[in-house]
Design a protein around this nucleic acid. Structure first.
Lengths: 335, 335
DNA sequence: CTGAAAGCGCTTACAG
DNA sequence: CTGAAAGCGCTTACAG
């Protein structure tokens, strides 16, 4: 005690101190290979007392492992994705930490996966988690080519990719169904980046609800790909002119703008027009009136994705696709 | 070509292929040590053609380096911090990638730095960047004790810590000054987490402005530590009753609630009360009326912090404190 | 200018 | 049950 503990202990140090071989120490620590209970105890005790910390990098080199996961975030994000990615990331980090893996961050956009390529060719990770996937996805194509284990958060039409997703389709179906059951005839659907796979799922759910009720979608009320406030404003005014009864928004950033446009046009929610969002982030949290929306647990999906990724790395069998539950939260805006 | 390139090339492979020693190959690649221009070229050519990728992990082990940076994000965040952290992170990643470092993510709160301890004792990083620091900061104390190189984004009263910050104090002084110069007498200041160092800086700037004008702060108009909508609501109502002329908000999440409370009380901005924010995120982006606010470049501070961290690691001298510029953006809400 | 050898700190057949 | 030795893929004095 009181020693200047500048130098880190190595496995050789503890072997020497105990008069055993490095092999024995290694075995005591890893639990692999036969070893006498006595010696094991001695080693563990010494290690505890002298605060020996194995060098994970060296261990990794010997095992051709890194104990790192790469998680790739999209470079471009909107206000509402952001909290999703953040919470999701926290979920990933939470699990990875508990099983001794670390998270290496990678920022990509679908046009430029240079950053991902660097990390992979540097062999810095054992697997990668894609937080965002696209209809045509350069990341997926690259990872498949390089035969790097990966999972995606979301869905994908690429074959053989391991997917962890929320059940957006059924969620959207259910929320749309609620409005349809109220007898609404003129329901608009707006927003949604069409390069994202989730946009297809959401639209699919919307369509499913119509089909189930035996009604037809009115294509003139569907505006996909609206990605800026000015367009949304304009669209909302058009919808009002067409005496729309309800507006479904692809996410709460869209909903936020829709609500603003409605307010400016002095249209009351929910009295004159009902509004709901297909994704519920922090943005609308304190809105008055409270906004009906789908609710997904971002942290949970991160945790499940991470668990799955590690299973893949450690070669335990996993489901090809796992679908997580959702909540339909009906509030004032659809009443 | 066409070969199944399952096995990665090693430095030994290229040495063999070229009939030189591993030493020579290593030197050709690293540029360190004497080496004939001829042989250097031969090595480089071979490497290029056969797409040899050095194993960064092995290199690191030999050099006792990791080529990883740890960036720690706070676990708890508000809507307005979030875009800051995100952009900042992107700035860090941008620079780190270009100089061959990767970013290891760590989530901490000031009570629980377990995650950071794990990464440090696993020796997974060469240095750490703290994106958020506290008046009493367990992270800083730990890193100093362990003698791990680190820099912080923000300011700190701990001795000898390398700080990269925006000049919040002068920024706040300037914005407050603008209102004071308009002849406002009753300016309120609200919001701000008092465990954050930046809250002190902001308040300091606010106070500086008063001092410069030879006026006195009215303590009954200062509400620090307001961290929830309900409290903000209540406070805004009190302020209205006290016929406040302007409300300065510590950040735009606070501003957002203030604006909402004002709207509900049918108080017009800026006609009856002026409003401005000391931090400008995405949240107020499209607000009507447009909100005056301070503007800081989060991506830039991330880049500078990362550059500084790497300089520290590579032992090039750095400034103890670097202060980045700000913009005071005056819009409708203070006119 | 070039190379043989030891070393970074672990793991893991192989032999006893 | 335990250990000597080779190996993971690099770097770097040291010697020539």
């Amino acid at each position: 005690m009181g020693e200047s503990e500048k130098k880190n202990l190595t496995i050789a140090d503890v072997a020497d101190a105990l008069g055993v071989s490095k092999t024995t120490v290694s075995r005591a620590i890893s639990g692999k290979g036969r070893i006498g209970e006595q010696t094991r105890m001695r080693v563990m005790e010494y290690i505890q007392e002298h605060d020996y910390q194995p060098n994970v990098i060296a261990k990794g080199l010997a095992q051709s492992k890194t104990y790192n996961l790469c998680v790739v975030m999209p470079e471009h994000y909107g206000m509402s994705d952001l909290t999703f990615f953040q919470d999701c990331l926290f979920g990933i980090e939470k699990i990875s930490g508990t099983v001794g893996y670390d998270v290496l961050l990678c920022i990509c956009n679908n046009q430029d996966i240079f950053s991902l390529e660097r990390i992979i060719s540097n062999r810095k990770v054992d697997g990668v988690i894609l937080m965002c996937s696209f209809v045509k996805d350069a990341q997926i194509e690259y990872l498949k080519e390089k035969q790097v284990p990966f999972v995606i958060i979301g869905s994908s039409d690429y074959p053989d990719v391991i997917q962890i997703d929320h059940d957006h389709r059924n969620a959207c179906k259910e929320l749309t169904g609620v409005l349809l059951l109220k007898g609404m005839e003129r329901i608009a659907l707006i927003g949604g980046n069409e390069t994202h796979v989730v946009t297809k799922s959401r639209y699919g759910g919307f369509a499913d609800a119509y089909k189930q009720c035996g009604k037809e979608i009115d294509p003139s009320l569907v505006y996909l790909g609206l990605d800026n406030p000015v367009l949304i404003d304009k669209t909302v005014r058009e919808l009002i002119a067409q005496s729309v009864e309800a507006i479904l928004c692809m996410d709460d950033a869209v909903a936020n703008h829709v609500l603003k446009a409605l307010r400016e046009a002095h249209v009351e929610v929910p009295q004159q027009v009902k509004v709901a969002s297909f994704y519920n982030g922090l943005l609308l949290e304190n809105h008055v009136p409270a906004i009906s929306a789908l609710s997904f647990n971002a942290r949970e999906i991160g945790m499940v994705a991470c668990r799955t990724m590690i299973d893949v790395i450690e070669e335990v069998p996993v489901e090809q696709r796992t679908l997580l539950p959702y909540e339909v939260v009906l509030k004032e805006s659809t009443q």
